[in-house]
Amino acid sequence: MDTLTLFPCAKINLTMEVFGRREDGYHHIRSVMESVSLRDRLTIRRIPSGFRFHCSIPELSGEDNLVVRAWRLLADRFALDGAELELEKQIPWGSGMGGGSSDCAGTLLGLARMFQLPLSLEELMKLGKSLGADVPFCLLGQPALAAGIGEILSPLPAGPQLELIILMPPASFSTPEMYRRLDSRPEIPTPISLTSFLEGLEQGDVRQITHGLLNHFEEAVPAPQLLKKAKDSLLAAGAWGASMTGAGAAVFGIFPDSAAANRALDHLILEKDWQIYRCHTLADPWSEQAQKEGTI
């Protein structure tokens, strides 16, 4: 195999709770996460020697890109000969949708396949954890309840396909800064009960799922007017619920069905510097069928 193309998928946090800071500087979190059909395109080509990387966003082509770091990790461990990686971005940068983590997961999976590396999924997830807290989820390829710093994953039932519109306002929030802002809360919140939410997920009750949407990072948003505008616009267009994902700034709305989401696109009137994405949740983003549908 000389060339391999993968379509790493974004993720959303249906719930996102952030608790106290750990001794290692990270935070305890708990989050229900799902992959969505908004994807990047990652092409891996085997070359005789060396390494080349190109990203469609020039600012992301540096050595700190998780794609580059994933290559370095496997190349050093297995003495890989050479590869050229090309990343075409569609997942918005700085959105809280895990685009970098998913690209990293795709790199690990793609290189393991291309070079026939003796790595199980569990071993890839351990390697992924060393690169980023969301990488193990992106490798897992199914809905999950994440705990710890995000690396302790409990797989969840696939649940219903959620029909989404995602709005990306003209802003991005620094994840470390968002955590620092949450650290100023007078009290550390206690975990809420997820029983009703998880029952809704298992039973396919979209209304019950939307009632349980939660994101602690919404308390720390430095541009609350943008968050309010995004949520209000989605709800006015017919969404049953809306929430920010990750540390933001992207906001998703869940619609009752595909037709309602498609109609809503005609009612969303936003300034031209806002980005709008129509997508849905994916139960298995690395499946052959999901990857076949991954054209950009």
Rank of each mutant, 00 (worst) to 15 (best):
L66W: 07
L66V: 06
G20R: 13
F7C: 10
V251M: 05
I47E: 15
E84R: 14
Q225D: 14
E88C: 02
K228Y: 06
G248R: 02
D64R: 14
G246K: 07
W71T: 11
L109S: 08
G159D: 14
T107H: 06
A260L: 03
F173K: 00
P222D: 01
I209G: 14
K89G: 05
R72D: 14
A236P: 00
E202L: 07
F19S: 12
K89F: 02
M1F: 07
P160S: 11
I152C: 01
S172F: 01
W93Q: 07
S287A: 12
Y277M: 04
H267K: 04
E122I: 03
W240I: 06
G99S: 07
S95V: 03
G50D: 13
D183P: 08
G100C: 06
A79R: 14
I192V: 13
N262G: 01
L131W: 05
D81E: 15
E218I: 06
Q161N: 08
W274V: 00
A112S: 15
L270E: 00
G106A: 15
L201G: 10
D273C: 01
Q161D: 12
G141P: 13
F78C: 09
L156R: 12
S95N: 02
P136Q: 05
E86Y: 05
T107L: 11
S154C: 11
A171N: 00
S61R: 06
V67N: 11
I47T: 15
R46S: 15
P169V: 02
G141D: 10
E23H: 13
Q116F: 00
L235K: 10
A171H: 02
E34V: 15
L164T: 10
L164G: 13
M125G: 08
H267Q: 04
G132K: 07
I29T: 12
A237D: 00
S287E: 09
L60G: 00
G294A: 10
H28A: 11
L117D: 04
C138V: 09
E151Y: 00
L234S: 03
G241C: 09
T107M: 09
E151D: 14
E177G: 08
L14M: 13
L268D: 00
G99Y: 04
A144M: 10
P118M: 01
M33Q: 11
W240A: 08
I12G: 08
E17N: 07
W274E: 00
E163K: 10
P224M: 01
K231F: 07
D273V: 01
A260N: 04
A146V: 14
E288I: 13
P48C: 04
A290T: 15
E34L: 15
L6G: 11
N13D: 11
G100P: 08
A75C: 13
Q275F: 00
R45G: 12
R69A: 11
K231T: 03
L111T: 09
S184T: 15
R263Y: 00
L153A: 07
I209C: 11
Q142K: 15
S31A: 13
P157A: 13
L282H: 11
G200Q: 10
I209M: 14
K292P: 02
E187C: 09
P189Y: 03
D76P: 01
F255P: 09
